[in-house]
Design a protein around this nucleic acid. Structure first.
Lengths: 216, 216, 216, 216
DNA sequence: GATGAATGAGAATTCATTCAT
DNA sequence: GATGAATGAATTCTCATTCAT
């Protein structure tokens, strides 16, 4: 269901049957976990249900993770890695602040839309982690926010982003909007729904028009 | 249910000052439920925990609701009623579409911020309802969306709202932004945080600037 | 629902309103308890359900009995008293053994049919009593059996009842048959159903034909 | 359900004699459930008690059934299957109606006596089933009754069974008598008690003598 | 890797009973 | 007598996790 970002890398499937099978089942466990957890929420998701979908007995799942929480952590961790990488990639383009910010929004939003279910978990289930894992995930969230925040500040400083509104409010507005993209009307029901590109374009346009300096 | 005939006699309340805990536990139950559920999520919230906070045994809570799900439903129902009323009040002002929409956003957003926890539950926990209750809550969500949607369309028709973006995307953008206000940095942590008014002002400004016709 | 045998005595209702109301509610509690318990069984019957039917709050029922078990005991006790009285009345007729037995069966069966629900409880719920009450009810059951047993023995001794079958088996057969009359097809569904008289007649005929000496 | 592939390899059971409790707990669970339920009644039987007797924790029982009601259903279902099979076997003997009926009574009664506890549950606990399961069990009861009913009618038509009594009353009388055999005095208390054979013989004799045509 | 029986803790819910008003 | 809130114990059921095979 969820399109694994794995597929963006070179497909490593040609190795041999044994490996592929293992890989596949491992992926399958994650994929099904993502599917169920994003639908029902982490707490309401039972290991049983994931096992049913994978086609394995409950006990067998523990060959693939050591605890339900660790499974959640891995899902969130992967989201962090992917979005971090995107952030770095955009950074490497060396654009001026506003353009940098908009490109960041664009690419990150694309990832969120391509990985709607995973992103949903990333945004809503961190509170179910505990201890070290919780602290780490919180830290990741802060990093994500900091990235945006720095760009907003830079834009305000060079006069391309409005500075009548506090940087923190603008940052939250941007993140919140990206966060919500997963619930914008998307293709699956087809008909008059929208593709990910259209949604991203609309979002970037709206955000740009609202934060650009001199827009009012 | 059965109305006591006692109440026809002289009220016997004057006996002594020791009012024997005649607190309205009903409100207390709802309040504590909202607090815990918004923090941990519905599924991860146990009746035990609510009971502990209220200060009664968990079995006693069943005097106030018939099931955990019904408790959730009541919380959501109240949110719907409040936001519905706000919607009606704004409608009575008879403003032109864009002004109407912005005032709607402003007042609804104020409610969301004043009732952050309840609003959070309203937006995230509907999926934990089942059957009839689920259907009804979904219906309420649609009504909420329809209200905004109609105003967007009207604004596009009278030329005050940009029409280069599909009405459904604009609607989702607006709702998503309101939906996220609860995570904007608010006073509680004080210091340099923001009051509800400031947050609402910023949100309305940002939304207005992004959807107004001719803004680009 | 269950026709109280009370009505066989002179109606004491004319006393005064207060007394009548109390009497009625007391009876009503017993009647509803019988109705629910015979339908669902003692263990599956909740005090709540009886209260609902009586139209009173659960807690109020404890003005009428001191515990659920005591309520059951009273129902069973009354059954015992009624059938005991019937047994005594038949005994006073001074009939020869077989005739005595058949008349005993006839009148007791009539009572069982007129008080189907109560009789059902009497036969099936004794095990839910405990301690002293259980012992007493067991004792009543033995008395009931002894009455029949003595008549069977006497009939075998004077040659009117077959003696090729052990007295204890014949006794159990008779009691078992009476015990089951409550499930014979009775009038309520009317149409081609049977009245209590017809059922009793058939039962007495069948029993008589099977236990009479020289019938084979 | 899933057959382990392990079994294709050499069976590793020869390791040591300590066969590690590979008892068929499935049967044990049913047996203990029958024992407790027949003694206390379904509603008064707790899962805890069954678990204690089986020697596992109560949660573990849910490997063997999915709900207490399903457990009851399985017990009743087995009774139905057994008695149905008996009915079919007797039918295959191709006897004239009265002989057919008596043989049916004889064999079914034997089963009831050999499976007293199960039979007791079969006869008294159907009301604790709900929905689909209840409907099915009710249907089985009707089939049982129909079998007897058809034989009575046939016997009346060929003149071997008395027809001065309505077929439905005779049918109920027969079923009621079989139903009650479980409380006839049996061996367990030994001494002067009776074996199942003697009880069946007596019952068949009594029934035969009461329903045969021309017996009065 | 996979099985499936078992665990142990905890969940929601029910319910007979009490008692101050 | 009646109320209704509260109790406390028990009940059914769920679930993450373990482990010998």
């Amino acid at each position: 269901m969820a399109v694994s970002i794995q597929s963006e890398k070179a497909p490593p499937e040609e190795k041999n049957g044994k490996t592929r099978e293992r890989r596949n089942r491992n992926d399958s466990v994650i994929d099904e976990a993502i599917a169920v957890m994003s639908e029902k929420g982490y707490a309401a998701t039972s290991i049983q249900e994931i096992a049913d979908r994978v086609g394995v007995l409950k006990g067998s799942l523990y060959h693939y993770f050591s605890s339900k929480e660790e499974l959640l952590f891995r899902i969130i961790e992967k989201s962090h890695q992917d979005t971090s990488r995107i952030s770095a990639e955009v950074g490497a383009l060396d654009l001026p602040p506003l353009e940098h910010l908009l490109e960041h929004i664009r690419r990150t939003s694309e990832w969120f839309l391509r990985n709607r279910e995973r992103a949903h978990i990333y945004f809503t289930e961190v509170r179910n982690l505990s201890g070290e894992r919780h602290a780490e995930a919180i830290q990741w969230g802060r990093m994500f926010e900091t990235d945006v925040s720095a760009l907003v500040t830079a834009g305000q400083e060079n006069g391309t982003i409005r500075d009548d509104l506090d940087q923190r409010l603008v940052t939250r507005y941007i993140i919140g909007t990206m966060n919500n993209l997963r619930s914008w009307p998307s293709r699956p029901g087809s008909k008059k729904q929208f593709g990910n590109d259209q949604i991203v374009d609309a979002a970037v346009t709206l955000i740009a028009d609202s934060i650009r300096a001199g827009s009012d």
